[in-house]
C-alpha cells in the first residue's frame, strides 16, 4: 500500500441505508495541500461519504486511510484530533456562545484537553499563546470584529464563516466543506470561495469541497470527483470532468455548465 503518498485515501467505501445503497464502492485520494471538489446530483451520496470519512457513519465495506492511519471504527473525535476538520451543510454553531469561544473549544480539543481537575484548580484560563493562535485564525477568515459577539446575533453567511474558522482553529490537515454555499447568495458565495482559497494558500490545508454551485467549485478546486446515485462517475481536473459526456448527462442535463 502506498498510502504514505496520499493524505486521505478512500478504498471501495460502501454504505447503505435499509437496503438502499447510498454509497457504492467509492475510491479516490486527496494529497496534502490539494483541493478537490466532490460534485454530484442531489442524493448522490456525497454527504454520506463525508460522514463516513468523519466517523459519524460506519461504512459497511472499504477502508478510509488518513495520513497513514487506518480509520475504520475510530470515533469521530479521534479522527478530528488526527487532523480532519469539517463544516456542515446545515449550520451547526454553538448557540449562546461567542465566536471566540467557538475557536477556543477547537483550540483545546485539538490537543485532547478538557480535564475536570484542571478546571477545578483554576488552571484552564486561555494562555497568551492560545489567544494569539485564535486571533490569527479570526484574522485569516476575516471575522476579527465578530470575536466577542454571540453567534445568535449572526446571519447565515457569518455563521458559515464562524464554522470555517472553528474548523481551522483545530489546525486540520484536511478541511471537508459540505455545501458551504447552500442558502447563501452570489455575493456571499464569492466571499466564502475567496476565504477558502486563502486558507489553502496560507495554511496549506487540503480542501475537499462538496458543492452544487459549479462556479464556486471552479474557483476553488484543482481536481473534481463526480458521483451519481452512490457511484463514482468520473474524476480528473475540473474542466476534464465537466467535458465528460456522461457527467453532462447525469448532472447538467441540457443546461450549459457555468
Amino acid at each position: 500500500m502506498a498510502d504514505g503518498d496520499h493524505l486521505l485515501s478512500l478504498r471501495g467505501v460502501c454504505k447503505s441505508f435499509g437496503g438502499i445503497q447510498a454509497v457504492h464502492s467509492i475510491s479516490f485520494d486527496v494529497d496534502a495541500g490539494e483541493s478537490v471538489g466532490l460534485v454530484g446530483p442531489n442524493g448522490a451520496g456525497k454527504t454520506t461519504l463525508f460522514n463516513c470519512v468523519c466517523g459519524q457513519l460506519r461504512p459497511e465495506e472499504g477502508d478510509v486511510v488518513f495520513d497513514g492511519t487506518l480509520l475504520n471504527g475510530m470515533p469521530t473525535y479521534k479522527r478530528a484530533r488526527l487532523g480532519i476538520g469539517r463544516t456542515y451543510q446545515k449550520v451547526e454553531v454553538f448557540t449562546d456562545m461567542s465566536v471566540r469561544d467557538h475557536l477556543m473549544v477547537a483550540e483545546r480539543a485539538r490537543r485532547g484537553e478538557g480535564r475536570l481537575w484542571r478546571d477545578l484548580c483554576n488552571m484552564s484560563n486561555p494562555t497568551a499563546d492560545e489567544k494569539e493562535r485564535v486571533d490569527a485564525t479570526l484574522e485569516l477568515v476575516g471575522i476579527t470584529q465578530l470575536a466577542d459577539i454571540s453567534v445568535n446575533a449572526l446571519g447565515l453567511g457569518n455563521c458559515r464563516l464562524v464554522e470555517l474558522a472553528r474548523a481551522l482553529a483545530a489546525e486540520p490537515k484536511i478541511l471537508l466543506a459540505d455545501e458551504p454555499s447552500s442558502g447563501l447568495d452570489l455575493r456571499e458565495t464569492e466571499e466564502l470561495a475567496a476565504v477558502l482559497r486563502t486558507v489553502q494558500r496560507e495554511r496549506g490545508t487540503a480542501v475537499l469541497l462538496v458543492e452544487h454551485d459549479l462556479s464556486m467549485v471552479a474557483q476553488v478546486v484543482d481536481r473534481a470527483v463526480v458521483m451519481d446515485v452512490g457511484a463514482m462517475l468520473a474524476a480528473g481536473t475540473f474542466d476534464e470532468v465537466m467535458a465528460n459526456p456522461e457527467v453532462r448527462n447525469a448532472y447538467l442535463g441540457q443546461v450549459d455548465a457555468v
Binding site: Q89, V91, C159
Partner: peptide
C-alpha cells in the same frame, strides 16, 4: 438587517 440574518439563516437552519 438583523431580521434577515436571524430569520432566514438563524444558526439552526440555512434558510430563504
Amino acid at each position: 438587517e438583523r431580521v434577515a440574518g436571524h430569520v432566514a439563516g438563524g444558526p439552526q437552519t440555512p434558510g430563504a
